[in-house]
Design a protein around this nucleic acid. Structure first.
Lengths: 343, 343
DNA sequence: CTGAAAGCGCTTACAG
DNA sequence: CTGAAAGCGCTTACAG
């Protein structure tokens, strides 16, 4: 193109009749600019369609106008939705978003986080999606000049947004118990479900707490570990049915595992809720299609909220007070795979 | 952090005993550098962990080291997978990827593409995913200094990767015909399926061509338009069954529509392939789970291939010859929703 | 409240 | 093949 030359700060200075440096101050909302100057500068900038060069600005020690979104995997339903929502918020805040997928590889993560300088050169802040860092990485990051926020982490020294996995699992189990089921099995995630190591463990804890409240002893045979995938759920449920026993109800640690379980049940002539009640967690887009009862987690909301917090910190030059851990609600959505026990 | 100062080009120059400008040339692979100098510079850069500042480099008129991935929507299965694959290729080529989601809104697209200067300031190239541009936007983009590549477009003056939608639809229909079905219905996409206006139309054309080859007249009643979503397929199939007639076989313009069709059939006591044979296109991750026969399109491959072409253009300073339109194969995957007609 | 000067780390002609 | 100089468009102290 044609790239008709963009207006520079010098053009704005000339047009407004003020110096470059006053323009710079005015446009960044810094103090020590008279009302009159401010107005003339804004008018000039507007008329010229001026937009600061991010490269020049960054080089001179200012902002890049960019944030990084870092996720273990961009293809999963969860991340795709959360990332899109976050990107939208950033775009509305005038920030470009750099996407960094860890591809599920710890080594990519470590290369990146062992030296946050890598980032601080190109972005103003990072939004972490379920990326588990070790203590020294957390420290390095929080001491960097970067603004940080995350989704689905625990005990981090920056703004975090997530759900209460333990409570969600408890609610799911509680639903089963309330329907009169006491012979419960759990398809428990055996690995980071959204990259967060703790998710699976917490969901298991919620399950156990609900049983405990009813003075029910969890049957080890009924706790089967399953990767948080359709196939994982399929394998686990198949194993349960064919080598152990058919429980009265099943709590799948995530919806995708529940889908697999559904398939395994069907293959064994069992159906939900007729023979077995089945509940999941997540409210995957396919869940309503399959009629799966589940405990929903708000996915775009988590991404958007965390992005908003990060954008605000950036706007306020990071003095937004102490970091906060936000837990979003997880409503139970009763559909067709659970019903009252006949016992 | 601590941000221990990064090595600059000056450090590399000092350590290697050469001038800044020779270092700059050497590191960018430009000619006019002696073998000896080249080696000393590379060693020094390596030892210092030197990486050029993208801001400085950009400001001085060089590269940004960034590419933009522009997609209508980051949440759909197709884009999530293709984008991730592309991001991976870019990362391996040392490029950061800026994610831009159009959120399905034409106005966001137009604001962006009516003035590509917007981009050229921050990225070296753009990868378009099914983003339909009008003629003047295409021209502006191709005349810009940006390298461009795309997935799923048609007749554009840059590298493009996609599938042959018409041929894929033909193959799907052919499969039905080969099974002895002649009473065919199509659930035809009524809108941009992946942002590309032409996808739906081409799939419809492929369907019609296959019928035509058998001298079958397409029955207008059996061509029902359906948004390319589960619900779209559900509504369309419901309408077909309840207000028209039950065909012998159904070709769904995409797998998600096929899922919805499956549900509608089930609700009407019909099952595939018992009463009706059903085939889709895409090979959505859920398709194997549901046993759907389909014509697969390679999704990560399309993203990765297009990204590779773009990265190569960038590497070769864009003199890679004339742009090429690549069509990837779409194999038929026979599963459980189609079978031989009993007529 | 305002501006002249220096400098951020590169690249681009231009000499040698 | 190599290097000194100018400049990219900003921001940051520092004077006024």
């Amino acid at each position: 193109m044609t790239d008709r030359a963009r207006a520079t700060i010098r053009d704005v200075a000339t047009l407004s009749g003020l110096s470059i440096c006053t323009v710079s101050r005015a446009l960044r909302g810094l103090p020590n600019v008279s009302l009159d100057a401010q107005k003339r500068i804004e008018d000039a900038a507007e008329k010229l369609g001026y937009r600061a060069s991010s490269a020049a600005s960054r080089l001179a020690g200012g902002r890049t106008g960019q944030v990084a979104i870092i996720a273990p995997k961009a293809t999963s339903w969860f991340f795709a939705e959360a990332v899109e929502a976050a990107e939208e918020v950033f775009a509305d805040s005038g920030l470009d978003t750099v996407l960094v997928s860890l591809r599920g590889q710890g080594k990519v993560r470590d290369r990146l986080f062992d030296d946050p300088t890598e980032f601080s050169q190109r972005v103003d802040g990072v939004l972490l999606f379920g990326v588990n860092l070790d203590a020294s990485q957390v420290e390095a990051l929080s001491e960097s000049r970067l603004a940080v926020a995350s989704v689905g982490l625990e005990g981090v020294p920056w703004d975090n947004v997530g759900i209460d996995d333990e409570a969600a699992a408890w609610a799911a189990t509680r639903h089963l118990l309330d329907l009169g089921h006491w012979d419960l099995a759990m398809l428990a995630g055996s690995e980071p479900s959204h990259g967060t190591v703790t998710t699976a463990a917490q969901r298991r804890a919620g399950f156990e707490r609900a049983l405990d409240e009813e003075h029910l002893e969890p049957d080890p045979d009924m706790m089967v570990s399953a990767p948080s995938t359709i196939d994982g759920g399929y394998q686990a449920m198949t194993e349960l049915i064919s080598t152990r026993r058919v429980p009265g109800a099943v709590f799948a640690g995530c919806d995708e595992a529940a889908f697999g379980a559904l398939k395994a049940m069907r293959e064994h002539g069992l159906s939900a809720p007729k023979k077995v009640s089945l509940i999941g967690i997540d409210d995957h887009p396919m869940s309503s299609f399959l009629g799966l009862t589940t405990v929903a987690q708000p996915v775009p909301d988590q991404g958007a909220f965390a992005a908003t917090l990060l954008a605000e910190r950036l706007q306020n030059h990071d003095d937004g007070g102490a970091p906060h851990d936000h837990r979003l609600p997880t409503p139970l959505i009763e559909r067709k795979t659970t019903r009252r026990s006949r016992h």
